[in-house]
Amino acid sequence: MRTLNAWMLGAALLAVPVGAVAEEAASYSNLLTPLLSQNVDVLGTPLAYPEGEAKVTAAIVTIPPGGETGWHSHEVPLFAHILEGELTVDYGEKGTRTFRAGDSVLEAVGWTHNGTNTGDIPMRLIAVYMGGGDAANTVTEPTP
């Protein structure tokens, strides 16, 4: 009976059209909407992961209209995607950038900056910190 079952399974596998496997893979890629693919942060600095054990942290950040993040920096790469609203980030001597709902960014690493909700509704973003070892996701910095 086992031989018959093995033979039937083999025959069933051979009966699957080769194109069906390719079609399934192609349909999966159709489900993806790329948000970002780059190897430098928003200021053009090449990404580098911290030493040590990997640690990924994901969070939703919400800032009310007129609210600020406060001056801070990141010791690890940070991917952010704006879900709602508008955020203007001041990078000091490197200028300001405004991000709106639907925008994605690899935030500046090792550079002090401050984000302000310059819109009329709460700004919400998803932040994914790609950390490791003892590196801090966010470090509070003095106002320049």
Rank of each mutant, 00 (worst) to 15 (best):
M1I: 04
M1A: 10
M1R: 14
T3R: 13
L4W: 04
N5I: 13
M8A: 12
G10S: 15
G10Q: 15
L14N: 14
A15S: 14
V16G: 08
P17L: 14
P17R: 14
A20G: 07
A22I: 03
A22R: 11
A22P: 00
A22K: 09
E23Y: 08
Y28M: 12
N30Q: 11
L31Q: 07
L32M: 15
T33N: 15
P34K: 13
P34H: 10
P34C: 07
S37R: 09
Q38R: 11
V40S: 12
V40M: 01
D41K: 00
V42S: 03
L43E: 08
L43Y: 03
G44D: 07
T45C: 09
T45R: 15
T45A: 15
T45M: 12
P46H: 02
L47D: 06
L47Y: 06
A48G: 15
A48T: 13
A48D: 13
A48R: 14
A48L: 12
E51I: 05
E51N: 08
E51L: 09
E53F: 03
E53R: 09
E53T: 10
E53V: 10
A54C: 03
T57F: 10
A58E: 13
V61Y: 13
V61Q: 12
T62D: 06
T62F: 08
I63P: 05
I63H: 04
G66D: 10
G67M: 06
E68V: 11
E68D: 13
T69C: 04
T69N: 06
G70K: 03
G70H: 05
W71K: 11
W71Q: 08
E75Y: 13
V76C: 05
L78C: 14
L78K: 11
L78D: 14
F79N: 08
A80G: 11
A80W: 05
H81E: 03
H81D: 07
I82H: 01
L83E: 08
E84P: 02
G85S: 02
G85L: 00
E86H: 03
E86C: 00
L87Y: 02
T88M: 10
V89D: 04
D90N: 15
Y91S: 09
G92P: 07
G92V: 06
K94P: 08
G95R: 06
T96D: 07
R97Y: 05
F99Q: 04
A101S: 06
D103M: 05
S104C: 07
V105E: 01
E107S: 08
A108S: 09
V109H: 05
V109N: 02
G110L: 02
W111I: 10
W111N: 11
W111R: 12
T112A: 06
T112V: 07
G115E: 01
N117V: 03
G119Y: 00
D120F: 00
D120R: 03
I121W: 00
I121Q: 08
P122E: 01
P122K: 01
P122A: 02
M123R: 00
L125G: 07
L125Q: 09
L125W: 06
A127K: 10
A127D: 15
M130R: 00
M130Y: 06
M130A: 08
G131F: 02
G132Y: 02
G133C: 07
D134P: 00
A135P: 01
A136M: 12
A136S: 12
N137Y: 02
T138F: 00
V139R: 06
T140G: 04
P142R: 01
P144F: 06
